[in-house]
Design a protein around this nucleic acid. Sequence first.
DNA 1: GCCGTCCTACTATATACATAGTAGATTCCA
DNA 2: TGGAATCTACTATGTATATAGTAGGACGGC
Lengths: 128, 128
Amino acid sequence: MATPKLTTLELRIMEAVWKLGPCSVREIQEAFPATRRPAYTTVQTTVYRLESKKTLRRTKKISNAHIFEAVLSPQAARGRLIDDLLSLFGGGPSLLMAHMIESGKLTKEDIAEAEEVLAKFEQKGKSK
Amino acid sequence: MATPKLTTLELRIMEAVWKLGPCSVREIQEAFPATRRPAYTTVQTTVYRLESKKTLRRTKKISNAHIFEAVLSPQAARGRLIDDLLSLFGGGPSLLMAHMIESGKLTKEDIAEAEEVLAKFEQKGKSK
DNA sequence: GCCGTCCTACTATATACATAGTAGATTCCA
DNA sequence: TGGAATCTACTATGTATATAGTAGGACGGC
């Protein structure tokens, strides 16, 4: 199955797990800023949903608590987000970039930076 | 109110209206490819929802059919989509671009094109 | 002027998401 | 060893989305 679509809360939870590594529901909940922290059971329910979507899995039990770890990588999840957006912009990056330029979100500096990243990336690919 | 969040179907309908100009529910429905064409009433319900979100409005009646036109511009709608994605990538375009480069979605040619677009855009801004 | 077609307005339903509460088991510490 | 804390599994609810059906009115051709 392809990378599943994640909702906002699901994504935030995945981000917590990516950051924390294998962890419990409680730890995930506490990774949220104290303001805007969902109830324990809200996090728990969503973790269960992510489990059934196979993006998280239980690895072991510490005392009576399950420990969860990410199955889905951040790269794959973010790739999916980007693909979804690109598909709304004709599939390629051109229209997306043009829109960002015209709304002032993409500057000369950003483009220069991208060039550097690309250069480094190509070099890495070559040496491999 | 800020640009409202649109769902996939809502966005497809907006795209049809942007392309067709002021039009009826029937015309919107028929703008969908014959395969994957939702029922007339599905389109109708969603058009009504877009009306209550103020992204569409009725302009007139042709015989007994209402004619709808877009209130929300494609630029605004797409800007909102981009902002939503960017906020998941730290707010700025750098991370997004880096991800696209590393997954091979953003090439040297795309960046060169972006530079041209940016140059043209800046020139236009200056002359104004 | 009537009948079929089309449109509107309303209603219905299934799914999913975000949210959170409850009951009961387990663990741990005093 | 017993009570407080914590965790699990299950349940509940409100909202949104996607989907489409129905009843009834209006139009238009014949």
